[in-house]
Amino acid sequence: MIEITDGGISTTVQDLGRFGQYHIGMPPSGAMDQFSHEVANALVGNDPDAATLEMTYAGANVRFEEDAVVALAGAKMPARIDGETVPMHEAVRVEAGQELETEFASEGARTYLAVTGGIDVPEVMESRSTYTLVGIGGHEGRTLEEGDELAVADNGADLDAVVGNSAPEEHLRDFTTASVRVVVGLCDYRLTDESRERLCDVEWTVTPEADRVGYRLEGPELEFVEREQPFGAGTDPSNVVDVGYPIGSIQLPQKPIVLMRDAVTGGGYATVGTVISADRDLLAQRRTHQSVTFDAVTVDEALEVRQAIEDDLEAIRDGLER
């Protein structure tokens, strides 16, 4: 059992996500930065789908009622146990009664706290991920608050063996980059040639409206090709007959919104491209007021990046005890 003594700004229980329900409007949820979630789990001897705590901007404080091994991965977040500094990307021991305290992330937006065994909340549709909009999954379907108590599962891992596990820097991802790679497409025919080029040429800024549902970006106006609107689309040039939105897709009500893991699953705004699967993790680590640029790639290039990230994860896992 662990007890939340301070919930931070927005801390939720997340795993790899909830699948097979998108067609009824249920987004996958799950860790926004899947790579860091998997690294945190690997360090403490968990399977990739064990539930972790996703802490946004400012971390939570957590008291442990039993001996445990924990690891932090993702955004750089200063942390201490009884005054002793806890390094990032390393499995450390916590003794019963001790408290882990975290502060504001100094780089990146989301830090994952994994505990050996995984956070044990009931599964909803085969996932422990929190989806706050309708209040399901995680702990009571909501962000964590002071006083919440969460069970930790026992996966049989040898705590003594996993302590000291660490992830080499060269296999971790660089959150300082503003560039996220996109496959341009979907309904990009709605944009003028000039605007389609601008999409990937200009620097966008993350607005304060950037959360698990989507990242709203600020930048220059993009223009749509003039046309007589097709039947059922609605009158605004940005409107299309309602479509399904891919996770990572860039939609254009006027300014771009990139849909993240608690996405609205469909709607009537033109979508013009999709952030590739590997780089959704990077975008999830961009902070309000930071810049973002879209770099157009082909599907094959996207698959190469995906493979390289999987190789990094594999290399991290190869160096670990469990």
């Binding site: 097709p230 039947f231 007959v241 891919p246 996770i247 897709s249 590739i276 699967s277």
Partner: peptide, 29 residues
């Protein structure tokens, strides 16, 4: 047929709404 990143395919059957387009979408899915 359009790629949504490396893990989605989006298929637009028509730009306009019609029963034909919708029934086609339902039958194919």
């Amino acid at each position: 047929y359009e790629f949504g990143g490396d893990d989605h395919v989006f298929v637009e059957l028509d730009e306009a709404m019609s029963f034909d387009a919708n029934f086609e979408a339902m039958a194919i899915t």
